[in-house]
Design a protein around this nucleic acid. Sequence first.
DNA 1: GACCAGGCACATC
DNA 2: GATGTGCATGGT
Length: 223
Amino acid sequence: MPSPKKLLRLYEILLLCQEHRHWWPAKTPFEVCVGAILTQNCAWQNVVRAIAALKQNKLMSINSLSKADPEIIAGLIRPTGYFRQKTERLLNFVQMIKRHYKGNLNAFFARPTYVAREELLSIKGIGKETCDSMLLYAGGHPIFVVDAYTIRILSRHEVVAPDADYDEVQEFFHSKLKPDAGLFNDFHAQLVGVGAKWCRRKQPLCGQCPVTTWRKKKPVISD
DNA sequence: GACCAGGCACATC
DNA sequence: GATGTGCATGGT
């Protein structure tokens, strides 16, 4: 298991290759939340289209979205796939914020991290990754987001086991790093950045990947 | 035409 | 609790 120092070194190298990514690519916290649901098992470029369509139809707000016809929403988010499920998930989310926080997203994110997390996870259609993306990128809570790229990259470097699950990997980051939302934000963004470019599902890490290049020089495994 | 993309819920064993 | 399956579009 690498030390906190090595994990930070990995981050520094990613940062040198890509610079700060200023994530999440959204204008408002609510847009982050919508994007987090829409990006489930789908390429980001399709999410961009769906978000543009929602904005064009003035549905990028808790109030308007919650009142919209599900058929209309489904039609607008169609490019992201699973559009019926995602429509239901978006509505489940906005209805919870309306019911419990009078539609005030800031009030929701003002809750303690664990309270907000439990509340999000209780919503049908919001799993751990979607929930943690919202907490970190929309709410500024210091919680590490684990996604397919994170597990793929770290397991290929034998930093975590290939079959490591979400909780294990998240706990790994939390145990090695200080709870710093800014660091967690960009670290995860860096991993997704190299992941989307170089780390496809069934392919080995290629030599162009900055993380691979780093490992060739100095293995991260054990210390 | 096969495979993949920044998941999740549910059924089955 | 682990594993398999449905959900669905768009790009390569």
